[in-house]
Structure formats: C-alpha cells, structure tokens
Design a protein around this nucleic acid. Sequence first.
DNA 1: AAAGTGGTCAACCGCTGCGAG
DNA 2: GCTCGCAGCGGTTGACCACTT
Length: 232
Amino acid sequence: MVRAPCCEKAGLKKGPWTTEEDRILINFINQNGHDNWRALPKRAGLLRCGKSCRLRWVNYLRPDIKRGNFTWEEEEAIIKLHAELGNKWSVIAARLPGRTDNEIKNVWHTHLKKRVAGKSEKGTVKVEYSSESDRNVEKYSELSSPGNSLSEVSSVAGAGGDNDFVVADLLDQWTEMGESFWSEVFPAEEWSGGSDSQLQFENSFPAELDGEDGNDFWRDVFNRAEEFTKYI
DNA sequence: AAAGTGGTCAACCGCTGCGAG
DNA sequence: GCTCGCAGCGGTTGACCACTT
C-alpha cells in the first residue's frame, strides 16, 4: 500500500516564509502550542504543510534559538561530538543549547568538515595564527579532531611512559568536564542573547571549572595541550 | 562594471521509528 | 502481530550573497 503524501500538494505554498506567515505561526503556537503539527497549518490559517511549519518553528522561530556565528567553543564541541556520535545532528544539537540540528549540519558541511579533513590529511596543517591564543586554540583542537579522537590520543600517547600523566590528567579533566557540562541543562533564556551570546556561553561553564575570568579552564586545557604536543 | 565562482543557509524530500488502534 | 499515521531525522537542493577575476 502506498502511503499518502504528508500533505496535499495542491494549494499548499512552498519556498521561503514571509514575515506575515512567521507572525501567524508564532501567534498560533504561543496561544495553542504545537501538539499536532499536521493539523496546525489548517487551524492557524496557513497554506503550508505541517512539516514545513514544524521546520520553520524548530529551526528559526523558536524563542530560545541562539542566532549569530558559532563561537570557537561551539565549533570545537561539534567536532568532538561528531567524532563521538557521527551524523547524529539532533543529538549534537541537544548538547548545544540554542542551536538547531540544521544549523549544526550546515556549519559542519561548510567549514568544520574541511577543518577536520585538513588536519587529518598529514597530521599537521600550515595555519596562520593571528595571535598566540589562536595558536593554542589550534593545538587544542587537534586533540579533539576525528583523526585524533580522545581515545586514539590516549592510546597513542599512552605509550609515552613518563609523559602519561600529562595525557591522563588532560583527558581526565576533559572527560570530567564533558560529563557534567554536556549533560547539564541550561535555561533557554541564558542562551537567547544577542551580540553578547559568546560571553553568555563562556559564563555558562560549570562553576568548578570557572576561574576568575571564566576562562581559566580553557586556558589550562590549551596550555596543557601545547605541553602535550611536545610528546607526540 | 560585468561575469564567474564559491560559500552560506533556509527549506524541501524521503526515510525511519514509534505509538495507537 | 500488523497496519497506519505521525513526528522527527538526515541528506540534499537551490536561492542568495560575497568575493574574485
């Protein structure tokens, strides 16, 4: 038996949403919720299929969506999570509050994939750094790329004898942080900021990892990563 | 200034998993 | 246990924009 299409094709609008349609959808969901996407467009008076409405809401209109460029931390988180989970965009998105699976998928295909591929090509890549901190950032990111997943880094570096403690310490701290950080639920309002959203992200790290300026943990990781790279 | 090229991102398509009957 | 309908997911497309030649 052939399943009926998700919506009748005739009479339903496709393509970019207008501001008027957005307004109607937002108003309707604010008043009635979205318990039934299929019935929603009819009830709201929209000439769209339920799928289209859902997508528009989830990826664009939801109030807790964090707009703007991805921060470096977010990009590195995506790289790390992708190395662990593969193309499970919705799972990755669930761990990056305010970001959508579609957005993450796009950013992966547009730049992160190339970044990772470039690094794994020969192990090292010529990169021009605008500052010393950028250089630390690059070194740190090498540790978490798919070519150097944490488990692989561990096994490779683990043969280093006396230097094991450096690796183990770094990984322990990262793992500890990872478990609590990624599973922690952040209130949506903390993520719905405007131009200062990066600051909000930085300030959202668990308190135990947070230093005087909120970035001591990351700085420590970068410094340790730099030290770590001497041994590999 | 115009044409060509590449990057970005919103949106669509088709498939899958799951719950209800 | 089976079928159906639905929401959700990941892959892909295409329009738009910026940059280069």
